[in-house]
């Protein structure tokens, strides 16, 4: 998918689609976390919502035994081969399941508040969460004070995108 950027004059927030590299869902028991870290060469945070980064690889802890792994496409095969068969785990590629939006600008918290009931001012920079945007399950990451990514399943993306654009236009009006 190619990146499309829509901006509006005076818009306090921009909405873009970020092309995905490779994304996996990794599941293993918390007790096996260190084995997984060693095999992947990437720390696996044990607190839900925390993110670790090593080289081009990133792990976001979504549940007690669940991580979202992002990596460059070139490393996909290496990741598939990294975890030993003796380690009970599930590694499932979900790259094609997801569409990721990048939302950036001073109005980004207001824009997200259209669809998310959580208090996002409390989400620290560099952390993420699985939550709901306008009834659609989404994974949110705060990359910077005014930049978030919002990932939703593919078929929900048009609904979410339409609302994000409407919200961005509404914010640009300043009413």
């Amino acid at each position: 998918m190619t990146a499309q950027i829509h901006t509006f004059p005076r818009s306090p927030v921009t909405v873009a689609v970020r092309p995905l590299a490779t994304r996996f869902s990794l599941r293993l028991r918390p007790g096996h976390r260190e084995t997984g870290e060693a095999a992947l060469g990437l720390p696996l945070p044990h607190r839900i919502g925390r993110i670790s980064v090593e080289g081009g690889r990133q792990a976001l802890c979504l549940g007690p035994d669940e991580w979202q792994l992002d990596a460059p496409e070139a490393e996909a095969d290496a990741i598939r081969a990294a975890l030993p068969g003796s380690l009970p785990h599930a590694l499932v590629e979900v790259t094609d399941r997801e569409v990721t939006f990048v939302l950036e600008g001073p109005g980004v918290l207001d824009l997200l508040s259209i669809g998310i009931a959580r208090d996002l001012s409390r989400l620290e920079i560099g952390r993420g969460a699985r939550t709901v945007f306008d009834g659609v399950q989404a994974v949110l990451v705060r990359e910077a004070g005014e930049r978030f990514t919002l990932s939703v399943w593919r078929s929900f993306a048009p609904h979410v995108e339409e609302l994000l654009h409407r919200g961005a236009r509404e914010l640009a009006l300043g009413l």
Partner: peptide
Amino acid sequence: LDVWLTSTTEAW
């Protein structure tokens, strides 16, 4: 049980 479930409806 050592088993995990991942929704792949939209991956394919």
